[in-house]
Computed example of a mutant assay.
Amino acid sequence: MKPTAAPVIRTIDLHQPMRWLVLGWRDIGHCGWVSFAHGLVLTVVGLGLLVLARHQFWWLAGAFSGLLVVGPVLATGLYALSRAVERDEARSWRLVLKTWLSWRRHGSGRDGKDWRLVQFGLLLGLAGTGWVLTSAALITLMSPVPIEQPLDFLKYVVLARDNWLFEVWLALGGLMAAPMFASSAIAIPLLLDRRISVLQAVITSWEAVLNNPVPMAWWATLIMGFSLLGLLSALLGLIAVMPMLGHASWHAYRDLVDASAWPERTTGQPGAY
């Protein structure tokens, strides 16, 4: 079934992103340990990266920032949980597992499978990998000394006064992150909720961001700020930050888009794309 009309993009106020965070915490209260487990998994992955790249910090800086790029995909289970809270349905690991494995179930599409979330995840994964490689190459080529430890990165990149490496690194990261944020701000929740194509979801996400540039810039700032707090707390803060932002992103989608004209996608019954 094809959508018969374009979704309605709503205009939001500057205070709405803060409301999303409050609603995110409310959803954590409803879902409990299932929500926090998502953050715990991300923390364990981050600690693993620290161990693997402890002597190659130039890789680590890119890897952690790359995690932020693929964050919307990692939060897919949280979107499903928030939708279940909204519908007063059961919230459990069974729902999360069904959501992650929905691409394996037979649907009504041409190939009998729903590959949209997989496709979008691969696209974001490629973008994250591209940033890791770009970040590593930039720091390796421009740093005056080898960057092997976090203190080396802080001393010779962040606090260096005789070069512009940190500023260039931030600017390049921003240039790569901005279109990825616009593409993914609401795309994954939309793909989870409605039977539309990846391209349609990305276009809708861009429209939502462009129609609300100031509130969405504030939302991106909040995401970055809380993510940095999680990283700087020895990664332990991610246990709470990741589920809060994931649940909040579902409410961002619900406030920004009226997708009622699009066919609904129910968990375990993938759409036609």
Rank of each mutant, 00 (worst) to 15 (best):
69 V>Q: 00
69 V>K: 00
69 V>I: 15
69 V>W: 00
70 V>I: 15
70 V>Y: 07
70 V>W: 07
71 G>F: 12
72 P>F: 04
72 P>K: 07
74 L>K: 07
74 L>G: 06
75 A>E: 03
75 A>V: 08
76 T>A: 09
76 T>N: 09
77 G>A: 04
78 L>C: 11
79 Y>L: 07
79 Y>H: 15
80 A>R: 05
81 L>D: 05
81 L>V: 08
82 S>G: 06
82 S>D: 03
83 R>I: 05
83 R>H: 11
85 V>S: 11
85 V>N: 09
86 E>R: 15
86 E>T: 09
87 R>E: 08
87 R>Y: 03
87 R>K: 13
89 E>D: 14
89 E>I: 02
91 R>N: 10
91 R>Q: 14
91 R>G: 00
91 R>K: 14
91 R>L: 08
91 R>W: 02
94 R>I: 03
95 L>E: 01
97 L>Q: 09
102 S>I: 01
102 S>N: 04
102 S>L: 03
103 W>Q: 02
103 W>E: 01
103 W>R: 01
104 R>V: 14
104 R>I: 13
105 R>L: 14
107 G>I: 02
107 G>H: 06
108 S>D: 11
108 S>C: 09
108 S>H: 12
108 S>T: 15
108 S>F: 15
110 R>F: 10
110 R>D: 06
110 R>V: 05
110 R>C: 01
111 D>F: 12
112 G>C: 09
113 K>H: 15
114 D>G: 13
114 D>K: 09
115 W>A: 10
115 W>D: 08
117 L>D: 01
119 Q>S: 11
120 F>T: 04
121 G>C: 11
122 L>Y: 11
122 L>H: 09
123 L>V: 14
124 L>S: 00
125 G>W: 02
125 G>H: 04
125 G>P: 05
125 G>L: 05
127 A>C: 13
130 G>T: 08
130 G>I: 05
131 W>V: 02
131 W>K: 04
131 W>I: 08
132 V>Y: 03
133 L>M: 15
